[in-house]
Design a protein around this nucleic acid. Structure first.
Lengths: 113, 113
DNA sequence: CCAATACTTAGGTCAAGGCCTAAGTAATTA
DNA sequence: TAATTACTTAGGCCTTGACCTAAGTATTGG
């Protein structure tokens, strides 16, 4: 899968507040489907779709023991989003620094005249 | 607008690779609609929809002078995504630290017995 | 072993997303 | 002022997304 497709999946998974709330919950530790579903006013099959989106994006992973499926965070994939964002920030800040430098030099020339 | 709806918009805007490429381009400086569209094999009206998604999310802003519309990055909104992600990281790292501490104490008790 | 539990599968509705063509409008340029 | 440029608007097509109900399967507790 192309790098950008991974980012598509990750950002898409993050674009829904139900899914983000699940990730918030899982940040505090593993949980079962029922536990995760409890806070939401949504039928289980609908909710489980969200879990499957999260799992496909690999932001979480799950394991089934007996009839209980337990989810946990898979922190690695978060880096895809974090890295993309910090790369953008790096880029625009570098540009703004160059602009500041440019303005500074303009001023120096001005005061020298 | 609720905080989560803002995050919905931001992450949704970021979930498409065309839109991310536009943001990458804009990280290096402002650009017009035609300049931004040039690299893409897509009809202008379709492309412009992506720009409007970006603008609605407030990740970018634009201004029209004459017949030319110029876009630029609006860095502030990126923080919504950055903050959400760093908050999750903070949370799960705190948890893993607690777990390490727990394991460490287990080992101490063990060696004391 | 029977019922309850914890999901899972199948399939349906409706809105939104991403692309298109065709036809505008407004600002510039020749 | 006529043509070109730089978008913009309108509307259509098809797929995907987010929800639902109904019915299934596989454990497990009584």
């Amino acid at each position: 899968m192309a790098q950008s497709a991974v980012a598509d999946d990750v950002f898409y998974a993050l674009s829904n507040s139900t899914r983000r709330r699940v990730l918030e919950q899982l940040s505090t530790g593993p949980a079962t489907v029922s536990e995760l579903a409890a806070p939401f006013d949504m039928r289980l099959p609908s909710f489980v779709q969200h879990l499957s989106v999260l799992e496909q994006s690999r932001l979480v992973k799950s394991k089934k023991r007996g009839r209980v499926r337990t989810y946990e965070l898979a922190p690695e994939r978060f880096k895809v989003a974090e890295n993309w964002l910090s790369e953008r920030r790096r880029e625009w800040e570098a540009r703004l620094d160059r602009f500041d430098e440019y303005v500074k030099q303009l001023k120096e020339k001005e005061s020298a005249s």
